[in-house]
Amino acid sequence: MADKHVHTFPGRYDEIQRICQFVADGAAACGLDATAVFHIELACDEACTNVIEHAYGGEDLGSIRVGWHCVGDAFIITIHDNGRSFDPDAVPKPSLPDLPEGAPPPDIDDVKVGGLGIHFMEQLMDEISFSFDGDAGNTLTLVKKNV
């Protein structure tokens, strides 16, 4: 296994760009292309925003430990916090337009935007898994394949 790069950041929104840069630099170093790096940045942003907003319930209430490493063609990111756990299956699924070509635009009132952050992570990454442990904290693992 390649070296694992780990850094701990304060749980603040203005730190998220730095977290994304830390992970993006790793992804680029592992040979992922610019589009994949952009997808990874967005997924990390969503994950860390969720940690601050939902796990900690606000800024400066805990830290976020972020790690990355490459194994074969997989770029693996771990995001760890010590906040509240949650049931990913209980997060509402966003209701989004999925229209055939030429259909009229949907009505804005029919769109439900709850759960968009997890939806983004699922769309952007090849694998996503949560683990929750009352003592050890919460760990989100994101995997992006270098194709």
């Binding site: 967005l42 942003d45 969503e46 968009l116």
Partner: peptide, 16 residues
């Protein structure tokens, strides 16, 4: 990010 999209959706609803 998704928060930005939510802000735009919410504000559009209010405008409508």
């Amino acid at each position: 990010n998704s928060g930005g999209l939510r802000t735009l959706v919410t504000s559009w609803r209010k405008a409508r």
